[in-house]
Design a binder for these strands. Structure first.
Length: 158
DNA sequence: GCCAACGTTGGC
DNA sequence: GCCAACGTTGGC
């Protein structure tokens, strides 16, 4: 299968691209939305590229690139009563929530902000700008390439 | 801090 | 199965 492209949101003061760079890899726990879960559980493949998006930031934007390095497996936090992600309806035999692992690839010299994305006609169809509250979402290769290009152009302008 | 979008829950 | 109430996300 050809490489696929995704966008994943993280609040930077919870877990930023810098945290991922430091750790190298991380597991994407805590997703509790079925549409986002289904993407991770059913569609993400090793080697897929991920735009790493900082949500709830000023401004929000794409901060860098990660890649999928482990395909879906149960999110352990659903079984942990002390976790805020605990799900009492989930069992070992019937886990409800799944996650993938991602690996750090690159931190952009400069973030591509949401206002910039909104101002770019070629990105008008992005899920990011058309559907709120979806923390894991598909991106087309053209959209991915455009954003990576914008990050490079921004950093050259310095 | 506000609030729109929208997903989830639960009564019926 | 409908839908009102409620909770969360996330931009501003």
């Amino acid at each position: 299968m050809a490489r696929q492209y995704w966008l994943m949101k993280s609040e930077p003061y919870v877990y930023s691209i810098d945290d991922l760079q430091r750790d190298g890899t991380t597991y994407w726990d805590g997703v509790r939305n079925y549409a986002a879960r289904n993407i991770m559980r059913d569609r993400m493949r090793i080697g897929d590229r991920v735009l790493y998006y900082h949500s709830n930031a000023k401004p929000p934007g794409v901060a860098g690139i990660a890649e999928v390095c482990r395909e879906s497996y149960p999110d352990h936090t659903q079984f942990d009563p002390s976790s805020k992600y605990h799900d009492p309806k989930a069992t070992d035999e019937n886990p409800r929530w799944f996650m993938v692992d991602v690996r750090f690839v690159e931190k952009f010299e400069r973030e591509v902000s949401l206002p910039e994305i909104r101002a770019t006609p070629e990105l008008a169809e992005m899920v990011l700008v058309n559907r709120s509250r979806l923390s894991v979402q598909p991106v087309t290769q053209a959209e991915y390439d455009r954003i990576v290009g914008m990050a490079a152009a921004a950093s050259e302008e310095g």
